[in-house]
Simulated scan of single mutants.
Amino acid sequence: MNTDGLPHSGDPPDRVRVGVAEFGVATGETRLTTSGLGSCVGVALADPDADVAGLAHAMLPSGDDDRARPAKSVPQGVERLLAAVESAGADPDRIEAKIAGGSRMLDFSGVGEGVGDRNVAAARETLAECGVPVVAEDVGGSHGRSLSVCPRTWTLTVTSAHDGEVEL
């Protein structure tokens, strides 16, 4: 599926790339990938029994509705991703989340919480409000990450120069 949650024509792709401020939904063996997560947060949602998963690459902890960039803010991205995953066949009672990212890429000592910290907090809060449990996470630090989600296995693979490859 593409970032509008609509199926691609023809055979399913091997991979759906999710850009900054976008989300995507896939089924079966089709992988969802995103890269360049610094202070941004990646939110993966899945119904493991239905082989359906989604991935959002959210930039900001809050913000106005932005139709052109459906996952610009964490709350907007999570809500739209949740609706798309349910539309693709996920049972709302079985959906769970995994999150990654939210790094402190620049040191603004003495300024308080960075955008990455606030993105992670917004993801946890929005998911809790939606009744979606967070079952795994790889957040914080000062390094970037790339993500890959496999709906069939409900594996979130996090790759970074800091930790190599970690499966959640």
Rank of each mutant, 00 (worst) to 15 (best):
D4V: 03
D4G: 05
G5Q: 05
G5A: 09
L6A: 15
L6T: 12
L6Q: 15
L6D: 09
P7K: 06
H8G: 06
G10D: 09
P12A: 09
P13K: 11
R15H: 02
V16L: 06
R17F: 10
R17G: 05
R17C: 08
V18W: 10
G19L: 06
G19K: 00
V20I: 11
V20K: 11
A21K: 10
A26H: 07
T27A: 15
G28T: 14
T30P: 02
T33A: 13
T33V: 15
T33W: 12
S35A: 11
S35N: 07
L37H: 14
G38I: 05
S39P: 00
C40R: 07
C40W: 05
G42I: 01
A44T: 13
A44N: 06
L45M: 01
L45T: 02
D47S: 03
P48C: 09
P48L: 03
D49G: 13
A50H: 01
A50F: 02
A50K: 00
V52R: 12
V52S: 15
V52M: 05
V52Q: 11
G54N: 15
L55Y: 06
H57L: 08
M59C: 10
D64N: 10
D64H: 12
D64A: 14
D65T: 12
R69Y: 09
P70L: 08
A71Q: 03
K72F: 09
K72M: 03
K72V: 10
S73N: 06
P75H: 08
P75N: 10
V78K: 07
V78E: 07
V78L: 08
E79S: 12
R80K: 00
R80L: 07
L81Q: 07
A83P: 08
A84N: 08
A84D: 00
A84G: 03
V85F: 14
V85G: 13
V85N: 04
G89F: 15
G89N: 14
A90V: 08
A90E: 01
D91T: 05
R94K: 14
I95V: 15
I99L: 09
A100K: 13
G101K: 00
G102L: 14
G102W: 08
S103V: 05
S103A: 15
D107N: 06
S109Q: 14
S109K: 05
G110S: 10
V111G: 02
V111N: 12
G114L: 04
V115A: 11
V115P: 02
V115Y: 02
G116V: 02
D117T: 06
V120K: 07
V120S: 05
A123W: 00
T126P: 01
L127K: 00
L127Q: 01
L127Y: 04
E129N: 06
C130H: 11
G131R: 00
V132P: 03
P133N: 07
V135I: 15
V135R: 15
E137T: 02
V139T: 15
S142R: 14
S142I: 14
H143L: 05
G144S: 14
R145G: 00
L147H: 08
S148P: 02
S148G: 11
C150Q: 09
R152A: 15
T153G: 06
T155M: 02
T157A: 14
V158E: 09
V158C: 12
V158P: 03
V158W: 12
T159F: 08
G164C: 01
V166I: 13
